[in-house]
């Protein structure tokens, strides 16, 4: 069964994915994904490993372009434009739709330079303005109080959780519309994870966030909507073909309490995955 979501007239969608298919060379990795992403809400992608949830998130800000063989069909509508339409510059897409990666990846530069990197790319040169942006962004990522006295310290000298929050600060410094998070807490300890979740609910409230997670509790705690992806298999001429598909998308509470699909139920109750 392929899930077809309903697009409500009253809802304000920041992004809509329509029949998105992702191919790596000849390999059809993700089939027919349609997801409306509501503005100002947190949408979580869950599912077993290899179900294509990270792939889908990367298509949203065209990070998949960096993979040579990757190809995307379908539409991702953002402010009335198809992100995969002609004449769309991925650089602009990425500036509007920021991304936080699975492993904290601060630049080997100072904390200040890490946060100022994005604004500088866009041509902000004034020192005072940059300082203002850095402070606001670090506050936004709940890191300011911890690092305000050593902004010149290397970003790599921070702990893992701080590094990840630095990456979040770096992302919000360019004031994106949407923040994509690809398992942002998977490399962190439980306390750091908790900080990130708290951050998403409090400091980042109001941002449209798409978060990929392995952790169902995290999706349950942090998100407004949850999309469940699963792996489909098929025997074709003796070879097993696998691909990912969206099984269900519901408001988080509903998905975890009364899942519409049997598969979702099996997954959230821990029968597989």
């Amino acid at each position: 069964m392929v899930y077809t979501p309903e697009f409500r007239q009253d809802a304000d969608y920041a992004l809509t994915l329509e029949d998105v298919n992702v191919y790596y060379g000849d390999y059809h990795a993700v089939k027919d994904v349609t997801i409306p992403i509501e503005r100002g809400k947190i949408t979580a992608f869950i599912g077993p490993s290899g179900c294509g949830k990270s792939t889908v998130v990367k298509t949203i800000n065209r990070m998949n372009d960096l993979v040579d063989s990757a190809r995307v069909t379908g539409k991702i509508m953002y402010r009335g434009n198809n992100l995969y339409g002609d004449g769309v510059d991925p650089v602009e897409v990425r500036r509007r739709i920021g991304m936080v990666f699975q492993k904290p990846n601060p630049f080997p530069k100072s904390i200040f330079e890490n946060v100022a990197y994005g604004p500088r790319l866009l041509g902000v040169k004034d020192k005072d303005i940059l300082h203002e942006i850095v402070e606001r962004s670090l506050r936004g990522a709940a890191l300011w109080d911890e690092v305000k006295n050593d902004l010149n310290k290397s970003g790599l000298a921070l702990s893992g959780g701080q590094q990840q929050r630095l990456c979040i600060a770096r992302t919000i410094a360019v004031e994106p519309d949407v923040i994509l998070m690809d398992e942002p807490a998977s490399a962190l300890d439980p306390i750091a994870t908790q900080r990130i979740e708290q951050l998403m609910r409090e400091e980042l409230a109001g941002y449209t966030i798409v978060i990929v997670t392995h952790n169902m509790q995290q999706a349950q705690r942090a998100s407004d909507y949850t999309c469940f992806f699963n792996i489909r298999k098929e025997d074709r001429e003796g070879k097993e073909i696998r691909w990912g598909e969206l099984v269900e998308m519901s408001p988080t509470e509903k998905l975890f309490s009364e899942p519409a699909s049997e598969e979702t139920h099996d997954y959230i109750s821990g029968r597989f995955g």
Binding site: M63, L66, V91, R94, N105, F107, G118, L122
Partner: peptide, 12 residues
Amino acid sequence: ALREASYGLGAT
């Protein structure tokens, strides 16, 4: 990861 980080911030 560094390349991704930079591209992710909208760098050319």
